[in-house]
Design a protein around this nucleic acid. Sequence first.
RNA 1: GGAGAGGUGGCCGAGUGGUCGAAGGCAGCCGCCUGCUAAGCGGUUGUGGGGGUAACACCCCACCCAGGGUUCGAAUCCCUGCCUCUCCGCCA
Length: 421
Amino acid sequence: MLDARYVRENVESVRNALKKRGYEFPLVEFLAIDGKRISLLKEVEELRNRRNIVSEEIGKLKGQRADTTAQLAEMKGVSDRLKELDERLHDLESETKTFLLTIPNIPHESVPVGSDENANKEIRKWGCPRQFDFEPLNHWDIAEPLDIIDFDRAAKISGARFAIMKGMGARLERALMNFMLDTHTAKGYKEIFPPIIVNRDSMTGTGQLPKFEAELFRVADPEFYLIPTAEVPVTNIFRNEILKEEDLPVYFTAYTPCFRREAGSYGKDTRGLIRQHQFNKVELVKFVKPEESYDELEELTGNAEEILQKLDLPYRVVILCTGDLGFSSAKTYDIEVWLPGQNRYREISSCSNFEDFQARRAGIRFKREGKKGTEFVHTLNGSGLAIGRTLVAILENYQQRDGSVIVPEVLRPYAGTDLIR
RNA sequence: GGAGAGGUGGCCGAGUGGUCGAAGGCAGCCGCCUGCUAAGCGGUUGUGGGGGUAACACCCCACCCAGGGUUCGAAUCCCUGCCUCUCCGCCA
């Protein structure tokens, strides 16, 4: 969420910045509502002031058993008027809030301007795609003879875009989760295992709601949502809290299942493990001081890259252009892993700095030593990494002519074997 | 699921319709005192919004779990929700 006052005072620059991401900011409407809200607020506060003064007077007079008829008569009028204006103020406040909640974040100045993913820029590449002396297979064609993933029965149990991991498939999933968590905790991230069903306020805090309801699974009766990423519960750990300066930065890592409707992606990645309604992911989340957040983003991205380096999987890092940036993000790096079966790089991690966008929605603040007032922290997060897609990358990159798959060295203690056959 | 109790400032805890942003204690900070420490004494210590200032100061409004209601006036009364605790039942 943007700061209402900042928007009010920097209308043109806000509008131009948002234009870069293809968002037309309805400036006139906003200023009209916001202006009305403020003038009404002043009026309401004046009335409340009057009410406070007179009711105190009444209290004193009653204490002296004096006559209060005149005061009571005035107060009746004040009270009625206040009630009416208060109601209108309420409406305007929630209107302003809703308005602000649906405006995306302002891109950082270092983000390349562009309208869609074609304008994303490759920042760096790591590793060399392997040269195969045979035609490399898709991961589902590798998995089927090995009997480690069962899509058909998963469809029977649940539906399309679900998978059953079996045998070494399941073991590899577990191995990756442990390997990733161990690597990140060694780097100073504290391990978190959060709830994966959350309330509406949490979804609003990180920016999934109110705009992206269609992408979420909802539990109907008491209203809950299944998390689309651990970012949601983990970032909301500090919702409506004021942290001490000395507590920052805070680094968390969390393994969770993730649930996504994938509405509107019909026909995309219909086969295989790439796009599932349920998948596992290890996430990295940071709470930092504003002046440090861009350095922290580089570091966080590096922490995610380290997983791929240790697994010896070739990848590249791409910076998303303004038009491809997520709603809440000010700057995002995507890490894309090489998939021989698709002969292209595919997203496996997304690392973002949200600046104070989520912190303002979620009310996550900190107090500087010796300074008055509070400031919003900056929040960051990134996948470190998506486990299903990592498994895909391993199958496709480590496949052999005979259909077996070599287990990457760092994973062997976790997987209990060096070869899947 | 049934029965009951409760949610007040960083923490403990009083208040039960008017003078309450809220007694008292602890903790923190600043002074005084003391050879040092402790004790003692005095002062001070929340958040958001609006106004104001060069910047302070200062003024106003709101906040006693959240949202509604009653009332001239609500921390206090009523309703709903959330959360916590106790007992019973059930259960991984």
